[in-house]
Design a protein around this nucleic acid. Structure first.
Lengths: 330, 330
DNA sequence: CACCCTTCAGGGAGCGCTCCCTCACCCTTC
DNA sequence: GAAGGGTGAGGGAGCGCTCCCTGAAGGGTG
């Protein structure tokens, strides 16, 4: 039951602890025969280095905290963002031999826990996911001097991030609707304390402004339910609208449902375009036109950014391009 | 930049390291005035205990590994299972002050990594999620003597688990369809190396058998695409079927789409029932009837099971009940 | 041939913490 | 008033590892 230690391996191999340590850590200044005899002992004993002891002296942890900000209610339990990002990030980090410590930051309490944990030097870096604009966490973490990279932009200007070209994506969507001859194009926004929501809204507004059309805006919070609710609101306020650009696909799905319930045909009466191109977008009826932005690619880019930061790389943001996937809903 | 140590705090407070340690660990045998002066010093210095040093001596880690088995292709990137389970588990574990180390077990390599990591004694327990029947990991982990709890049943008989009443849920679904007057009821199964798939299939079969009807089975793998594909297959093989029970909602969504494309009306021509009652189920058109089984509750139960095991509790499985949510698709 | 330099193994301090043990002190009790 | 018991603080060993330093041995050079 008791795990063998370095000393035990050294004794077994008939060499010093130092030599075993060198072999374990892949140092090159070891004679091949010592290497072999050590490896043999390691194998026989099933030796696994004790990470705690190692961390204690090296002050490296080989671990990265992945901090996900959850809406307090936690309703969007099947938000693809979470799965895709967390999964991709884990995969990437594991591939380079780093541990992933997952932390949720959904309450002040859990935020404090994250701060304490990170302050405790238990991780080499932090990756932030989906933090609200007003969240004090990014700034607090950045202040600690630890490498921090954010999936999407945050209010903390000194935190390097990977974001989409949100305004550009919105423009793509709106121009597409205009090309299709739509004239009253509404939008359903995400929560406006999120940068991506604001940027998508701004892209929508700017594009309409450029073509002399007015904006019709309803607020959502990136959930299906909010999309449905916003859509009902829009139909009430402006029964003549003939297109909707939803700031994410989940809300577009909600909008689709609300339109159906209101007896509007999609795309005949109202065209719908979403954002993110999640898998579900291809399975709505009618299938959803959406701005494609590979969350997986963005997640990968964020991991790479963080790893570069840990190695001392430059703190500069990365912007990912996106394009439009046209399906039946527009 | 250098973090203060216990010794520094002790010096500052004018007491011994032992006393500081006692205060930090909440021992009761400390005089209130010493408590106060220590807490004061801790606050002033922003002291955070070094977990590595602590783990080294206590041999506890306060960490739990959450191991998620991914399909190698990783297609189901917005599978609600992942979000819901991982999120709920994190929340529960953080609430009791435990770290969550997330690990993916999708390849032999990553499986070996998990095994090595767990063998290294870096965690106090392991929670397994969505492991395939043939996966050698559960048994391997159980052999290490470390507490292991599984979300859903696995082939390793000595690993305690929390599962749904899958057969019962399937029976609920099929009986409902029979009550609605359906006579040719097909099913789309999940991957058959998963216990829950087999149990749902068995529940379906048994219920039909009891009423003297024959089974019509198509294989899926829990993804939307497989559901659509299986549905097309079923329609081809048995054009007269009037109902489908899909072993999960994602496949039901795919089936819905395939039915739509084949020109069948739901529920008029073909009734559809899913399993899991994910959020998306309420947003399909028509809205999906589904067997409800709170994944969040199941996840919570699994965490509690694991925590109980760590405390030395009994290794007995837990079965969760489920019920049927009737919507428009049946 | 003597000397120096390089290469590489071993010794051992020390990372920050816990926990056992010792010991001082105070309160009872007879 | 002395002895005994209990309470609670301090001292210090040691957890398993890395990494600096020392020193032995071998090879090259003048």
């Amino acid at each position: 039951m008791k795990r063998p230690t370095l000393a035990v391996v050294a004794a077994r191999a008939g060499v010093s602890k130092s030599s075993v340590s060198r072999v374990i850590n892949g140092e090159t200044t070891v004679a091949p025969e010592i290497r072999d005899v050590v490896m043999q002992a390691v194998r026989e004993l099933g030796y696994v280095p004790n990470a705690a002891a190692r961390n204690l002296v090296t002050r490296r942890t080989d671990a990265v905290a992945v901090v996900v900000s959850d809406p307090p209610k936690g309703v969007v339990s099947d938000d693809p963002l979470f799965s895709t990002v967390v999964r991709t990030v884990s995969r990437e980090l594991e591939a380079v031999g780093r541990r992933v410590v997952l932390m949720l930051a959904e309450s002040d309490e859990s935020r404090a826990r994250v701060e304490r944990y990170v302050a405790g030097g238990h991780v080499d870096g932090v990756m932030l996911v989906a933090l609200h604009g007003a969240d004090p966490l990014p700034a607090a973490l950045a202040r600690m001097g630890l490498p921090v990279a954010s999936f999407n932009r945050t209010a903390a200007t000194d935190v390097p991030y990977v974001a989409l070209d949100n305004a550009g994506g919105a423009e793509l969507a709106v121009r597409h609707l205009l090309d299709r001859g739509r004239r009253r194009i509404a939008t359903i926004t995400g929560p406006l304390d999120l940068y991506e929501s604001r940027e998508r809204l701004e892209g929508y507004r700017a594009t309409l402004r450029d073509t002399g059309r007015r904006s019709i805006v309803a607020l959502g919070d990136f959930t299906r339910a909010s999309g449905a609710e916003a859509m009902r609101q829009l139909l009430e306020d402006d029964p003549d609208l003939d297109a909707v650009f939803a700031a994410n696909d989940l809300m577009a799905i909600g909008a689709l449902r609300a339109l159906h319930q209101a007896g509007r045909r999609v795309p005949d009466d109202v065209a719908v375009v979403g954002f993110d191109d999640i898998e579900a977008a291809a399975y709505t009826m009618p299938a959803l036109t959406s701005v494609r932005s590979s969350m997986a690619d963005q997640a990968t880019a964020t991991v790479r950014l963080l790893l570069a930061l840990i190695k001392g790389g430059p703190r500069k943001p990365v912007i990912m391009p996106n394009d439009l996937v046209v399906r039946e809903s527009s």
